[in-house]
Structure formats: structure tokens, C-alpha cells
């Protein structure tokens, strides 16, 4: 398969090619999937070094399962979110209670300013507020409103019912609204 065709190929096709020894398939899958895993882990954990370790581990599990992957059974992205969610939950259990140093580091682990100062400041404020939510609410909010997954997909990833997802996101949003109420106007200084 040519490089152009591989760029267009589905994740499952690329994983099958990787399992047959195609290194280009691994490169394309890494480019496509690692930002998704890294972004999710960074937002859930609030610490870049931990998010890097989780991303490497989640991708390693993908490489290991490649020869046994059954086509059509699950979406690779959903499976990866599930693995990442479990790894993050384990990590959060290990590091609890979060120290004050970690909370103060939250702003330092924000994404680089690539979409303007206003977006960066709002994203930073949201991340700080997210870190004050209970873990499950934070995971559900990130999957629903930042990763833009459907409620059934989130239920599948978090191993809970759709109703439980709705409840978690509703409670999370209420808490976020209170935490961010003062900041919306303060952060509307650029283009609005």
C-alpha cells in the first residue's frame, strides 16, 4: 500500500499492516492517535510527565494487541480511550491526595499558546477548574465536551450507563459554572 493510501486508511487497516511488520503504519497511527491519548491524559491528570508515561503505556498496549485485534469488534480510538481512562484512574489512586505543589503546577502544564492568548487563558482557567472536580466528573466532562464523544461511547469507555454519564456531566457542569462564573468576563479581553 502506498503512503498516500495509508494516510487515508482506517485505523484498523493500519493496525493490521503494523502487525504484518509495516513500520510506516506505526508512524501514521502514532501521529493520528498519540495526540488524542496525550491530550486526554494531560487534562485528566494535570501533569505532563505523568501524561507522557500514560500515553507511552497506552500506545504500547496497542502495539501488543495488534496481532490479536479482531476487525469490526471495537473502534481503536474507543479502546484507547478506555485503556487511557483506566491507566489515569490507577494513577490518580496512587497519587491521592493531590499535593498543593501539583495543584499549583496545573497552569504550568497548559498547552502552548497556539490559538491566541485568549483561548490559552480560557483553556488554562478551565483546566484549573477541572482539577477541582471529582475524578469521574472530570473524565466525563473532558470526554463529552472537549473530546466530543457521544454519551453511549463515554459509557462504554467509563464502564457506566448512559444515565450515569448524563448525571456526571450535569453535576460537573454545574460545579464548573460556579468556579468559572467570575472568570468569563475577566477573560473576554481580546476579540469580543
Amino acid at each position: 500500500m502506498s503512503y498516500d493510501a495509508m494516510i487515508q486508511a482506517a485505523d484498523e487497516t493500519l493496525l493490521a499492516l503494523y502487525a504484518k511488520g509495516n513500520p510506516m503504519a506505526a508512524q501514521i497511527l502514532t501521529t493520528r492517535l498519540s495526540p488524542m491519548v496525550f491530550g486526554y491524559a494531560s487534562r485528566v491528570l494535570g501533569q505532563q510527565d505523568l501524561a507522557e508515561d500514560i500515553t507511552q503505556e497506552a500506545m504500547l498496549r496497542l502495539w501488543k494487541i495488534a496481532p490479536k485485534w479482531r476487525v469490526g469488534e471495537a473502534k481503536i480510538s474507543t479502546w484507547l480511550y478506555q485503556v487511557t481512562a483506566n491507566l489515569c484512574t490507577d494513577q490518580l489512586r496512587k497519587t491521592r491526595p493531590m499535593s498543593l505543589d501539583v495543584i499549583s503546577d496545573v497552569k504550568d502544564t497548559q498547552p502552548p499558546v497556539t490559538a491566541g492568548l485568549q483561548n490559552a487563558a480560557r483553556s488554562s482557567a478551565l483546566q484549573a477548574a477541572l482539577m477541582n472536580l471529582p475524578d469521574r466528573q472530570r473524565q466525563a466532562i473532558i470526554l463529552r465536551h472537549i473530546e466530543e464523544l457521544s454519551n453511549p461511547e463515554i459509557g462504554n469507555i467509563m464502564n457506566i450507563s448512559v444515565e450515569a454519564v448524563e448525571s456526571l456531566t450535569a453535576r460537573g457542569k454545574r460545579a464548573l459554572s460556579v468556579m468559572l462564573a467570575d472568570q468569563k468576563d475577566a477573560l473576554s479581553y481580546a476579540t469580543e
Binding site: P111, S123, L180
Partner: peptide
């Protein structure tokens, strides 16, 4: 509240984390 939060969610989506 949803509309207010959407501003923050949009900002987060616009500033993706790069490995």
C-alpha cells in the same frame, strides 16, 4: 450556564496538547 461554559470548552478544543 451551558453557553458560558461552551466558551471555555471551545477554547480548550482550540488549544490541543501536542505530544
Amino acid at each position: 450556564d451551558d453557553a458560558d461554559l461552551d466558551v471555555f470548552f471551545e477554547a480548550a478544543r482550540a488549544t490541543p496538547y501536542v505530544p
